[in-house]
Amino acid sequence: MPVEPRLYLDHNATAPLRPEAMAAAVAAMQAGGNASSVHAEGRAARAAIERARAAVGRLAGASPGRVTFTSGATEAAATLLQPDWTAEGRPLHFARLIVSAVEHPCMLRGGRFAADRVSVLDVDADGIVRLDRLEALLAEGPGPALVAVQLANSETGVIQPIDAVARMVQAHGGILVCDAVQAAGRLPLASVPADCLMLSGHKIGGLAGAGAIVARDDCGPVPLLTGGGQERNRRAGTEALPAIAAFGAAAEAAVNDLQNIGALTGLRDWLRDALRTISPCLTVIGENADRLPNTLCVTLPGVAAETAVIAFDLEGVAVSAGSACSSGKVGASHVLKAMGMSDGAARGGLRISLGWSTQRADVERFIDVWQRVVARLGSGSGRAA
């Protein structure tokens, strides 16, 4: 009897490698060359990086010159979250950082700001930042603040009111850094009014090992990595050509994905309705807020997410409990706790994230597996396990 292939519904952790990204990475590995060299191989490597830079710029709605490649979003965060910046050649210094309570851990840790210079911005029960609290924090001083608010949350898919946040930050003379990692290819980025965006290649179907900072204007942090003159002196170190080439190819594909967002939203909502029919006790986290079209975060009474993840894994299905970057740590989700959920409830968030490779048949299969798993866990009709 043939073995059924595994079903992957954990795109927010890492998207499956796109064929075009694999082809670009293989071509880069076969070509070789250092993009800083002046010989033919070096020029070819440089051309491949610049093609990728242009593609990432198109995804972000920015000119190629505004794109700085990094090793990933964590390095981008470490670069951006620091007190010393420049704007139009003039130095800027921020004495404090404001970061939302539902940010990725690499943002919540505050980068190079001292712990006592970091203020955490509360969210409401839907996971939306409290604008009244932001206004109060911005007005506190001393001086303008660097502010970090994500565009969309990796666990819940909740989308932040980034336009309103940007207006408030700009009115107080601050700089807004926006983690757009989960939003890339799922929301248009060109109109996002943040001063700097963060992106990650492997979240859109590229390889791990390449990310980017995209600056809207002539502003940016003092470089984290210094040495050579790579990336226009913004980030030293020989560029990871295969990963960057894959990032560029994935970015081109992600731009095209935006044309199919309606279909992806339809799949997510169909899945939600089917799960509710099977499990009337199901709670959809952030349901009253705008959410990413691919993300569904749910809880079932009495069922720990870690238990459910294992049960689905044994059925050949990959889903997740919270952020993959916190894997190996069995604990309550800091995102769900920030939304006011108890420790017990915050251990129950199960994330199903669709993506570029998800078909209707995949969702149908997951619904069948869900029915078996929840019956086994004793929560199919709302009974506590």
Rank of each mutant, 00 (worst) to 15 (best):
H11G: 08
D126Q: 11
P105L: 08
R360L: 10
P64Q: 04
D132A: 06
I213K: 07
K337L: 13
G42T: 15
A48S: 12
G127M: 00
A246T: 10
L271C: 11
E103M: 11
A251C: 09
D368W: 12
L59W: 09
S320W: 00
A338E: 04
A45F: 05
G173R: 06
G57N: 01
A21H: 10
A125C: 06
I204T: 02
D343C: 03
A171P: 03
R117F: 01
C196N: 12
S63G: 12
V330M: 10
E41H: 15
L282Q: 04
P105I: 10
G237W: 13
A28G: 14
D179H: 01
L176V: 03
E287F: 01
A321C: 01
R167P: 04
S333H: 08
R351T: 15
G61C: 09
L354A: 07
E20C: 14
R96C: 06
R167G: 14
C106W: 04
A263F: 02
G57W: 01
V192I: 14
G355P: 08
L336T: 09
I204Y: 04
H11S: 08
A251Q: 09
F113H: 05
L9D: 05
G141T: 03
W85N: 13
Q82M: 09
P193S: 10
M339N: 00
V169D: 06
A236H: 04
V177T: 05
A166K: 05
V373A: 13
A15H: 01
Q170F: 08
T14G: 10
N34E: 10
A190G: 01
V373H: 08
R272P: 02
G61P: 02
A180G: 00
E364L: 01
A52G: 12
I128F: 03
R291Y: 03
V177D: 03
